[in-house]
Design a binder for these strands. Sequence first.
DNA 1: ACAAAAGTGTTAGTTGTACACCCATGG
DNA 2: CCATGGGTGTACAACTAACACTTTTGT
Lengths: 195, 195
Amino acid sequence: MEPQVNAWSLPGGILGARENLNESVLRQLAEKVDVREVAHLEQLSIFSEPDRMPGPRTVASTFLGLIPRTADPHLPDDTSWHPVAALPEMAFDHRTMVLHAQSRLAAKLSYTNIAFALAPAEFTMSGLREIYCAALGYPVDATNLQRVLTRRAVLTPTGETARVGRSGGRPAALYRFSDRTLRVTDEFAALRPPG
Amino acid sequence: MEPQVNAWSLPGGILGARENLNESVLRQLAEKVDVREVAHLEQLSIFSEPDRMPGPRTVASTFLGLIPRTADPHLPDDTSWHPVAALPEMAFDHRTMVLHAQSRLAAKLSYTNIAFALAPAEFTMSGLREIYCAALGYPVDATNLQRVLTRRAVLTPTGETARVGRSGGRPAALYRFSDRTLRVTDEFAALRPPG
DNA sequence: ACAAAAGTGTTAGTTGTACACCCATGG
DNA sequence: CCATGGGTGTACAACTAACACTTTTGT
């Protein structure tokens, strides 16, 4: 809509009278963009500038929602996925919202098990590594990723191995996440409680 | 008010038409409880359950506000400070709000310079240690606190020393915070970018 | 001289990165 | 038997907690 005809905007809508914000987000994602596999949802900032949009005063409460890499919702025609590294022109304050979400995700990847919400049920270490690289924006060593996540008991080996491609190579072990709910795995970098 | 006659509630109020949420918080703290020295303010969760309070539907946006230990606002008669370790009966979901704020503060003390907002302009290490102990709820070693904050360049020595009490002892060196705005000092516990 | 408070040095343990090396598979 | 991708072991560096020891003051 004017004055942002060519700009993209995030999905969103009005809070219903008998729902809380989380319910509202899940409802709108399902109704508007057919996204129904939200594995993790958390609040981000509120955007409350009086003139953030034309028209009646609105306050936008933003969320970070994660779905597994394998999800493939049936997007409507006016909707599509965009890599965060190459965002199109975005309406109002929506670019800022996306950047907030990106940095929150990057931060939580380092001290929580939040990747459970991005990975499929079972995966190889190199598959998981791709997810971390994409979300963090820099290369991650699969070796050390394995060690860190194993020490923190974030990963559980399934004992199975993945089938190998036509180019050969040793078959990769399959893992799953020990928990499928957010857990802080590295609480205090410094100033831990004594004992 | 009914049905929470004897319960305490946090200061708060209605968002004005021409202010954003930050401005609203600062206005309400000043007007309602004479708190005007807010050195740091950040958003916490939104509470949006449809029935969280009787009466018309409200959505509460909560904040963590920090003021220096030396601040002494003139509180109205119906208002007082309460230690988080011994909260009185609290109205509606306000206890949950306080606990959220407490854990956010504790977390940020470990990886940011957020204590600048709690300390006076100049302070001794043992004074700062008391602040950390109170906020974290467990003893903190002044020695290691000094080392950690110095290495991260969070503290700057003033060169001055504090006057010593009547019981003797070596006079303490005075420090100030290098920045008086929030800075992340220990960004990645794990999975740092290479190089 | 002694007690009290502050500051320094040392040690040991944990965690993380980097990288060389070994293993399993397909062609 | 070689290329390819996966997994393991080791070396090194950084950081922290704990605590003994030294320094500086007032009485």
